[in-house]
Write a protein that binds this DNA or RNA. Structure first.
Lengths: 250, 250
DNA sequence: CGCGCTATTGAAGCAGATCAAACATCGTGG
DNA sequence: CCACGATGTTTGATCTGCTTCAATAGCGCG
């Protein structure tokens, strides 16, 4: 029942030093680069860092010096203001962190590891110089920035228009799709975040998330024991996520 | 009572041809550029366009060819999916549009003029070449992208955590701040969008927006006749926006 | 002057929040 | 090994803020 200890999502044993050999290359910035540009990127993306569960990659207010690329592991990004706290995302392997800090040279969110994470550090000053020399990398970088805007807009749309049931369904199928995009098994996944985190991400309370998960389970769309989630009727779930309103689901 | 017909927010009479002379220069991408870089930008940012109220700058699905810089006027950006429609922003003079379309070469939102607008067109291919040649422009561009991410994150936070009263207060003080940042009179402003638009932006119904505006009016914090809004007790409104929970406001 | 659109106000219903309590799960130390 | 507390999850009961539906009022404009 246990998955193979070495999967694209588990921390790899010895640190991989080259972007060209990184299993996440196609998702991270290095995707679609000419080999020589790749070499340049490797040259500046020297730093590695390992985070244990609960450790912070950075906190709101920290000076922005580097971008971070996730080599493996799962994290959550947080934003707070006067007591309230919102989870803004659950970044995972192959994603880029810190893009929102470029504008004013200071991070405005916390980033916490949900499990053991391997992180690449990309000094922004070095990257800036490199972008000028390697246009394909620059394009890649701009796409990454733009995609981040899209992601936020989609999330915003979700919060504004979808009701709880739909939000959660969308969250689940989105999560599944992200694992699938990484070539990882996606019909059965281990949730790395608490119900509370999910709630804070979707703008719902923990209790509400629980009840909805129970409904999905009773409807036979998923099975869920603890944080082990299995998609049983993915199509039905996806339909709900798309807003196709079916029977009110008792 | 009528404002001077020539203000930074009104469409200027004869088209200004040079970025260096554009009244919005400091807010748009040209801010803080070396004069020679400015000249380059002027060279590629040739196209001008005037939109009348209700006209579309572009629609979801349109191919992405140019970025748009707003020289004057007000617009709204829309996103839809299966019937539902969300207003994602009310861009105004000095802001850049289209950054979300870079990633996949296709716009995924509609942009509609709320009044007469003058728009600069910046061919993206030209800009890309220019960025390589002019590092200061590249930095400026990255800041613009990053700031857009921040804006979306802030909006997301709002939707997730703030209740209706606070959202609307935040919307109003935000609007005021944006006028102030442009050097325009900001204690009395003309809303360019309908109550419905405000609702669709804040994730509320039009009725709810109306009721809240009525409350703010009764509390003596604003006056509002039609779309003419005056801030009377800005501090109180700002306090509410910041989440300082005061008396329940009858 | 009357038509159409936007805005306002009222009454009723409901989705999700809040409060509260039981129940797993898990690491830890006796 | 089990008892233990800490943490996370589940379910129930009640409450409330916002939506929905409906009707009226202003306002601009031909």
């Amino acid at each position: 029942m246990q998955v193979n200890p070495v999967t694209p999502l588990a921390p790899s044993g010895p640190a991989v030093i080259r972007c060209s050999e990184c299993p996440m290359g196609s998702l991270c910035m290095a995707g679609g680069l000419r080999p020589c540009d790749m070499a340049h990127l490797e040259a500046i993306a020297g730093g590695r860092r390992t985070l244990m569960r609960g450790e912070y990659l950075h906190r709101a207010g920290d000076a922005f010096v580097k971008l971070f690329a996730i080599r493996s592991g799962h994290l959550k990004t947080l934003r707070h203001a006067h007591g309230d706290c919102q989870v803004t995302g659950f970044p995972m392997a192959g994603e880029l962190l810190g893009l929102d800090a470029i504008a004013d040279g200071r991070h405005d969110s916390d980033v916490v590891a949900l499990d053991t994470c391997e992180i690449c550090e990309i000094p922004f000053d070095g990257l800036r110089e490199l972008l000028v020399a390697a246009p394909s990398l620059m394009d890649q970088f701009h796409r990454a920035l733009s995609r981040e805007i899209q992601r936020q807009q989609a999330a915003l749309f979700l919060m504004g228009n979808a009701r709880a049931e739909q939000r959660l369904a969308l969250f689940l199928v989105g999560l599944r799709a992200r694992y699938a995009a990484r070539g990882a098994p996606s019909t059965q996944i281990q949730l790395r975040m608490s119900r509370d985190d999910i709630g804070a991400y979707l703008g719902l309370t923990m209790e509400c998330v629980c009840r909805l998960l129970a409904r999905f389970r009773k409807a036979g769309w998923i099975t869920l024991t603890g944080r082990r989630l299995t998609f049983v009727d993915g199509a039905r779930l996806a339909a709900l996520a798309e807003g196709v309103c079916q029977e009110p689901l008792a």
